[in-house]
Design a binder for these strands. Sequence first.
DNA 1: TTCGGAACCC
DNA 2: GGGTTCCGAA
Length: 532
Amino acid sequence: MKAGCSIVDKPEGGGGYHFPEWAYKTESSPGSRQIQLWHFILELLQKEEFRHVIAWQQGEYGEFVIKDPDEVARLWGRRKCKPQMNYDKLSRALRYYYNKRILHKTKGKRFTYKFNFNKLVMPNYPFINIRPNGVVPQSAPPVPTASSRFHFPPLDSHSPTDDAQPGRFSGPSLVPSNPEALGDSGERKPDLPELEDGSADWRRGVDLMASRNTASAGGVNHQKRKPDIMLPLFTRPGIYPDPHSPFAVSPLPGRGGVLNVPISPALSLTPTLFSYSPSPGLSPFTGSSCFSFNPEEMKHYLHSQACSVFNYHLSPRTFPRYPGLMVPPLQCQMPMEEQPQFPIKLQPPPVGRKNRERLESNEESATPQLASPPPPRVKLEPPVDKEAEREEPPAKGKDKSEKEENSSMAAPSTSLEEEKGPVFARPAAPSWHPTPLVPAQAQGPAEEPQDQGESSGEKPPREPSGEPGAQEKREDALMPPKLRLKRRWNGDRQADAPEEQPNGRVPWNGVLGSPHLAAGPKAVAAAAASDA
DNA sequence: TTCGGAACCC
DNA sequence: GGGTTCCGAA
């Protein structure tokens, strides 16, 4: 029976696009005994005779359009010996690929989907390396590369490509065989398809990134889609002779050893991707560059993360997930005109109360509270205060920026000016103290250490700052060692941080929260020690 | 049209 | 695991 089902004989290579041999093996798909749908789709895409049924979308790398859904379904049904197959069913199967991130839907375009070739192909191109020459636009979020220094565990233990054999991609097969295909490589329109996905959801996903999160980009996005952010990474003409075929350019060393070829534009920068780490067996680089965490690299890495987060509105949570691309320092700078649009305060999202407390107490000590109106001197209930501060409910914010504005407005005295000011304005930090300190004095002095951050005169404006020194000593005596350490640190910091701005805001230096700032006094102390 | 849950099949 | 089939919802 089944024997009679197969309709797609052998790939003829006439389609103009060459995929790895296994992609054409109808009998077997990587990872499965039976042909898989995505596999089949590639097959059809590759055949000229099916062009009228399904074809690569012009100008969109990896994107294809099902011109005749019924026919495709019929073909698929034939192949699977499922005469009842229809597009509805087939599309259901395709939708299952969303979560696997093999495919995603191109929103707004009927019957249009896009392959996530990184998912599909990456494992087959362990040698691709885009890093060296910064092929990737600097403004783009870091893209994982096989040579990334930071490896993350694979997201999926099993994916269609997991089984792919690296050796399968033979040079020849990767070369575009169809002149026609090459010919029509028009200009690649700067595509940000993913963005239209709501990617912001990349955040969708992203937050997705969630994670494995992806479960957000969420996983991908929420995948429900994580915002697969597709960056205009490959808009340079010439890089992709054929904008449509994901394999138009041979990644093989023919081009000069390690490929500097940009990875497929189909690479959606979803978290997913980032979690891919070439198996040592696959990557030629494995021996050399992995797991080296030299400070400079890390610095760059963090910097780029920060820039990406900043430039693409990524959730700071995604921060640590992209393996190392470097972004030149200035890249982070937003055009002045744009700044108002991104009143982003890169505060770590919900950090979790504990961390938050730490951060805050830390920040407080590090930055004068001038920025915000005199915080309540009264001890506040943490939860309430935080919530109030955080979601100072604007009428359901019309849009993000508004929300942000509002959040910054939480501080009663925050002026419009301020809102427009530094993008990373620090929100007014609640002044409550995490640790119940000296009871009676606590109210006043206990807070002091925090305010103190920059200068000894930091006491609440109202208090006569007559003899800071004496007072400090007294406090020191009363202060628990931890606090003392903190205070000492604050002092050091003051000396170390001449850049600190008068308004108490920490200048954006491109690095999301320096480890020092984020880590808390202890870590700071340790860092300081090590720095020294 | 598209999405995704659920049950079921191979 | 990878669909297939159904179906309600948006």
